[in-house]
């Protein structure tokens, strides 16, 4: 029983982290699906989301507003707006001018953008990590009081629910809405979509904006979960989310969701049963294995070259 409770604890922790990876991974996968490039500045967009949320929370506290739902919603909206504008601007400034060139060029441009944004936040906010207030405290516990207890905090529940809502809204948006339909068309055949009168530039901008908004949600959630953020906060999370996207099959939205969850669980199981230091080894080891044995990922479709 105790073993099971311990396992359950790792599973809960893994799914919590995994669902936020999935939120970030969607940004990678959507952009790749549409223009076939890896947006390496996406981790920074997420980090900026976390900073914006923190600034909003601090500002509201200074104004004496402490009603929790209001604080969270305002912080979330601010983070989403700032991150989305950033995502939009990054595409306009760094990717659109080099679109259609050799595929290494946008990649380098993306890495440049990532370094720029990181250092910009270093300058503007300082390089030390800053504490994120613990707004959602408490939780449930299961198990006998004298042995191991599985705990699930309200924060974790918030993360689950928020992620679930975001994923549902996104799935509906992609499958039902007119812009979602156009997104799918553009990702399958950009030239043809353009010929049929779809404003492909607008659709590409829209994917950057959507991906950035979801990253901002993840930024706020993980900022609160970890309790502190720093300008490098986006780097590892970005790499992990990228791994999740590749694991699930880059270009596939359900793949990003699945990949995020698998990666999160794999990491927390490693921490729980092996050692916390091995968790990055396992996740990037997974990346290498998937690239070696199933480069299209779990749900990715093999690219068929037409002759």
């Amino acid at each position: 029983m105790q073993d099971f409770l311990y396992f359950l604890q790792q599973l809960i922790n893994g799914l919590t982290i995994g669902s936020t990876y999935a939120l970030i991974a969607i940004g990678y996968t959507m952009v790749y699906g549409i223009i076939g490039m890896i947006n390496f500045a996406h981790g920074e967009i997420y980090m900026i989301g976390a900073y914006t949320a923190l600034i909003a929370i601090t500002g509201l506290a200074a104004l004496g507003i402490a009603w929790l739902p209001l604080v969270l919603i305002v912080a979330l909206i601010c983070a989403m707006i700032v991150s989305s504008s950033m995502g939009w601007a990054v595409e306009r400034v760094a990717y659109r001018p080099v679109r259609g060139k050799h595929r290494l060029i946008p990649l380098i441009s993306a890495i440049g953008m990532s370094i720029f944004l990181q250092n910009y936040v270093h300058l503007a906010q300082g390089s030390r990590n800053v504490g994120f207030p613990d707004l959602i405290e408490g939780g449930f516990r299961f198990g006998a009081a004298d042995s191991f207890q599985t705990s699930i905090s309200y924060m974790q529940i918030t993360i689950f629910i928020t992620t679930l809502v975001c994923m549902t809204v996104l799935s509906l948006f992609i499958s039902r809405s007119r812009i979602g339909r156009a997104c799918r068309a553009v990702s399958q055949d950009l030239g043809m979509a353009n010929l049929l009168g779809i404003d492909t530039n607008r659709i590409i901008s829209a994917t950057f904006v959507i991906g950035a908004a979801l990253a901002a949600v993840a930024g706020l959630l993980l900022g609160m979960y970890y309790g502190s953020i720093d300008p490098l906060f986006g780097f590892i999370a970005g790499l992990k989310a990228f791994t999740a996207a590749v694991l699930g099959g880059i270009g596939s939205i359900p793949g990003a969701m699945l990949g995020g969850l698998i990666l999160g669980v794999a990491e927390s199981m490693t921490s729980g049963y092996l050692s916390g230091e091995y968790k990055d080894v396992v996740s990037f080891g997974l990346l290498i294995l998937i690239l070696l044995f199933k480069p299209t990922g779990l749900l990715g479709k093999p690219e068929v070259e037409k002759i």
Binding site: R181, A182, R184, A185, Q188, M192, L196, G197
Partner: peptide
């Protein structure tokens, strides 16, 4: 050059986007 992974009717709807 159809959008193969979209349904038949979606192919016609997406062409009317503009």
């Amino acid at each position: 050059r159809l959008f193969n992974r979209m349904t038949v009717v979606e192919n016609l709807l997406v062409a009317q986007h503009r």
